[in-house]
Amino acid sequence: MSKLDEEIADLKRLYPNATYIGVADGARENWSYLKQHTSGQILDFYHASEYLAGAAEALFPTSKAKRHQWLEDRLHSLKNKRGAAKKILQEIESAELPKKTIALTEKRYKAVSYFTNNHQLMNYHQALKRHWPIGSGVTEAACKTLVKQRLCGSGMRWKATGAEVLLTTRALIQSKGRWEQLWSEFMTGKVEANL
C-alpha cells in the first residue's frame, strides 16, 4: 500500500460519513486510481473550458465578439444544464469551419476528442447541486507549493528516495497539526524514525 493510499484510508477512518469526490483532468490513470477511493468523479471544469475555448477559436476565427459570446453560452450550459456536454460535442463535430487551417482544424479535433473521451465525467450541474467541487485548482496549487517550488530549483537533481523523504517531511510540516502529531507519536514510540 502506498503512502497516499494509507493517508486516504486514515482519512476515511476519521470521516467515515464524508462523501469523497475525485476531481482531475482527462488523463486515464487519474480515473483508474480515483475510482478506487471516491464515490464520485468530476472532470476539472477549467480543463474542459480550455478545450471549449479552442473550439470557439476554430468556429469563429474572425470575430472575437461571436467567439466570446459562443464560449460564454456553452460554458454556462456546460455548468448548469443536464446533458450539455453531449450536445456541445455534437455541435462542435457537425459545425463547418469557416477557415480550414491546420491549426484551427487541430483545435476542433482536440475539443472533439476531449469531449468524446470525457463527457460522462462532465456532470457539473449535478455536482454543483450536491455542493461538490468542479475544479482541481486547490490540489494543483498544493502540488506547486509542496513539490515544484522545493524540487525544481536551479541546478537541483533528486533521486526518487531522497525526493520522497524530503516531500514527506515537507508535507508534514506544511499540513496543519501533522508535524506536531508526528513528533508526539515518535516520542511515545507509536511511529518509527524511518518515514
Rank of each mutant, 00 (worst) to 15 (best):
E140S: 01
I92R: 08
S77N: 14
K86S: 06
A84G: 08
W183E: 07
S113M: 03
M187H: 09
R13L: 12
D25N: 11
E91H: 12
V147S: 03
P133C: 00
A111C: 04
L182T: 01
H76V: 14
C143E: 03
R28G: 10
L11Y: 08
R28Q: 07
W31P: 11
K81P: 06
A53Y: 02
E57V: 05
E72H: 10
V112S: 12
T19R: 15
Y33E: 11
H37E: 09
R170W: 00
E91P: 08
N17K: 15
E180S: 14
L151I: 03
P16Y: 07
Q181G: 03
R130N: 12
Q41Y: 06
Q90G: 09
E50Y: 04
Y15S: 10
C143N: 11
H125D: 08
Y51K: 14
Y20C: 14
I21Q: 15
G137N: 00
K12G: 06
S49V: 01
S63P: 07
E185P: 02
L128S: 00
K176I: 08
L78W: 04
W179C: 13
A111W: 03
T62G: 09
A142I: 00
W70R: 12
A58R: 05
W31C: 13
S32I: 14
S63K: 05
S63G: 09
T62A: 10
T169L: 08
M156E: 05
K144G: 02
C143I: 11
E164K: 00
A141Y: 01
L43C: 05
E72K: 09
A163E: 05
V165G: 02
E72A: 13
E192N: 10
T145S: 06
N17D: 15
L104P: 11
W70F: 13
F45T: 08
N194G: 05
L78V: 03
E180M: 07
S77Y: 14
Y20S: 15
A160G: 00
A193F: 15
D10Y: 13
T188R: 13
L43K: 14
V112K: 12
A27H: 11
T116K: 10
Y15Q: 10
R150K: 04
Q149Y: 07
T19D: 13
S2D: 10
G83A: 08
E140N: 02
L43G: 07
H131L: 05
T188D: 11
T188Q: 15
I134K: 00
G26T: 12
Y46T: 11
K144Y: 05
K86Y: 07
K3R: 11
L104A: 11
L104N: 10
K148T: 10
R13V: 07
A24D: 06
T62Y: 06
S154H: 06
A160W: 03
G177H: 04
M1V: 13
A95H: 09
L14G: 06
R170A: 06
S154M: 02
H125A: 12
S77P: 01
Y114M: 05
S175L: 00
L4H: 01
Y51V: 10
K159P: 00
H76W: 13
K87Q: 14
R28E: 10
R130I: 02
T105Y: 04
L104W: 14
L166M: 04
D73T: 15
K159F: 03
I92H: 11
Q36V: 12
A127F: 00
G22P: 15
G54W: 13
S49H: 02
Q41V: 10
P16T: 08
K176L: 04
Y124K: 01
K129S: 02
T161A: 09
D73A: 13
A141P: 03
A18T: 13
